[in-house]
Amino acid sequence: MSLPRPRNDRAAGSGSGIDLVQAERWGAFLAGGSLTLFGLTRRSLPGLGLAAAGGGLIARALLRTSGTAPASGTGVAVARSVTVNRPIAELYAYWRDLRNLPRIMDHLESVTLDDDRRSHWVAKAPLGTKVEWDAEIAEDRTNELISWRSIAGAEIPNRGSVRFDAAPVGRGSEVTVTLAYDPPAGAVGTAVAKLLGEEPDQQVREDLRRFKAVMEAGEAPTVDGQPSGRED
């Protein structure tokens, strides 16, 4: 299997705006109920208030669209790179144990392994709900590439990959992640997308930032739980 080709490949790190076509695709994706796959439950996001406002819509969208066949071509794909100051073998080994992913990917609650190739993924969804699916490793080339995809019948068919390349001398390793979703189409999603204005690639960027911090520093920086003069 070849690498999933992202449609809005922003790996070069330039733009951060989201155009209308993408917004529409993103809307379709949201209608699938997988809103928080990109972490909208995170407290720090500016769209939080809006997320709450959109919660009901999403819940309804979830009910209405579950079981609908995926409309191909309406999906969302992102690719992002980060440079990590660690040897490739270490990064590959960490990622190959998919159970580590919830520590990096904020939207994931757990990944459990059925066997060496098959796994069960649980993601957080709005209003305390969850989205679950089974996935399998599609391709595994030691210290080069890992790709995975959901198994037929998943509510939100999705796939992803991570590639490891050596950076120039003394600069560690370049890690490129792609994620792609092929959700069922739905009109409600467009409305929700307008409410949220969230960018899918920002979430991948944050996930990679966390991965880098965990691999380099052993922990991700946080200020959640520190004192302030606020009541929160």
């Binding site: 600069r171 880098k212 911090a213 520093a217 052993g218 991700a220």
Partner: peptide
């Protein structure tokens, strides 16, 4: 953090891993 590219080069105020 003391362990990123920048910290290793003594460019501590440019650390990659300390700004949440």
């Amino acid at each position: 953090c003391g362990r990123c590219f920048f910290c290793e080069r003594q460019l501590w105020s440019l650390c990659d891993n300390s700004n949440p």
